[in-house]
Design a protein around this nucleic acid. Structure first.
Lengths: 192, 192, 192, 192
DNA sequence: TATGAATGAGTGTTCATTCAT
DNA sequence: GATGAATGAACACTCATTCAT
């Protein structure tokens, strides 16, 4: 039936199913059934289930970069505190608005324990966020808005808090995300 | 062959395999093979794979309680800062010393997305830690060693940071756990 | 727990379970569970499941004999019609009062297709009923109360009807058993 | 290997095996082995063993209707007795010529005790035969060829006898089917 | 591009039966 | 008499994958 739309159909169906059932319990049969596309046709696009998953992985994490959410060149002495707060809240809001994506991401993270490739990439991404916060705080220090003291530790606290707020949100644990992130930000800022 | 040791053999083999392959990819056949015990013998002890997993879950999370790591009745005005720091580092060190347990716990957390029962229990445990920190900070406030200000947010920061440090350790992401936790603690303390 | 009562407990549990689940779906585990007797203990009394079933078979069919229901030596010229009717209705009533037994019997009959031994014995029992009716009708003929004509066919009609009424009752098909049996009897009797 | 013939091969193998071993003892592995078709290929056609059995059930009972054997619109005053006799004998002969089908049918009937769906359908079929005979006898009465008296009971006798003759034939019990059925018919007919 | 048909290997689970005590 | 522990064989079923068309 569907001629030209098979590819996105496969992607969509796979993502929806993975969000609900996870990576391992989502079988190619399920994807074929949901998308209305035959299994061999899926193999035409993706030479194995693993390749399909890899593709989804890239899709999901492609734009998940520190600079995407915290564009350093926009930070100034005056807007530093506000931007840092807002950018973080923006990131959290994106997750709240699209919990399905967060679910899928979490399935990949859970699966990464058994898959070297994902493991490495996820480590890279998270590390890049930690480094990003460190660079940002160093900039703040130069601008004179960030307290002296262990910059690395403070950057890591920001990274750990922001990352884990979304995990808790996903699990449905009630965290006062706005208050928590604001507190964390004000903690690293020089008192006015 | 093995007579009285079947039960612990099953548990051990299951834990080892789950640490490596995860909950779903660890099959009863694998457990049977590794433990040298036949599949029906496993069913003699656990009426289903699910029951076995439940048992392991309870085993792992039984003693994971806030009071276990942060015994509130030992906290005084004088030792507050030191105890809070040490207790947290103690928790982190336990994980570093037993990374396999952490791996398994993480597999259960990953699986909880597809299993209501685990989901609820894990939420309970994490929530209890957040609440524990809140009670502890309130005590500190009464003792005059904790800064005024949003206690809830601060407690959640402590919880989120401590929890996520272990996740990052598990993933092999280098975080300066000691420095980070010390910083987080000093942040909530009244300046001396 | 149970010391001296194991044997009848096994029998009772087995019969109850077979009535509900049939011969094949009733496992020794089920019998052990229901009776509260361990499987090896059951093997102490019955060297195999087959032996247990054989025993139950004998128990059920021991008293199922034509003479049991139609005692020929009580039949006279005067009571012939009434006795033939009443004895048949008596047999049907027994089944209606104890449908569980009928169910079990039916399971054995169904199973007999795969078991030579049961097959032979059930054939014997049914044949004996057919022969019984034939002997009875011959007696009636000598007494002058039974019509001339094909005695064998008439006897077989009686046997087939009586046997199948109980089958239909078991299946829950509404047959007017009393009217049907009375009609069948009056059919073979000489008109008064 | 086998390309287009898998479907009938499965059906045939299943029927043959069920005739010999019954519904429960016939496993999908047996069917796969006998048909030379892999188990997953069987699942390609039938989504479960139950669905396969349902299909066979429908196949077997599809044409087993009263009108199929006793077409009422062909009955007249003159041919009534002969037709009723011949049609019944025809039905019996079909069974004698295809004892395997009868065996399978009997397995389904035996299994119906544990399966509501089959139970209901079989009851329906047998009830329809009883009703059919009743309608037929009422017609005969209007034509003046059937004795007055309890029509329902007589119809049920015909149904019970005809049905049970085939059961006895299946079991290998010697019944004089022709004589018995002829007698049963002449019993309900008005004497000439 | 796409499909119906097919498969080897594996899943969790249950069976009747046996062994040591 | 009775039991907990154990087993080989089988069960219905699903998996990712491939082949011929």
């Amino acid at each position: 039936m569907a001629k030209k739309n098979s590819y996105p159909l496969i992607i969509d169906s796979a993502l929806t199913l993975i969000a609900e059932y996870g990576l391992e319990k989502t079988s190619l049969s399920m994807i074929a059934k949901k998308s209305g596309i035959s299994k061999p046709a899926i193999y035409h696009y993706f030479s194995s289930k693993e390749v399909l998953l890899d593709h989804l992985f890239e899709l999901l994490f492609k734009d998940y970069r520190f600079e995407q959410y915290f564009p350093m060149d926009t930070y100034t002495k005056d807007n530093f505190s506000r931007l840092l707060t807002d950018n973080g809240l923006q990131l959290l809001q994106e997750y709240e608005e699209n919990p399905e994506a967060l679910k899928i991401i979490n399935h990949f993270i859970g699966y990464s324990g058994q898959n070297r490739a994902y493991d490495e990439k996820i480590k890279l991404i998270l590390t890049e966020f930690l480094d990003g916060f460190q660079r940002l705080l160093l900039l703040g220090q130069r601008l004179g808005v960030i307290k002296k003291g262990d910059i690395t530790a403070k950057a890591q606290i920001l990274g750990l808090v922001l990352d884990n707020i979304s995990s808790y949100l996903l699990m449905g644990i009630e965290v006062e995300s706005t208050a928590v992130w604001s507190q964390a930000v004000s903690y690293v800022m020089e008192d006015d």
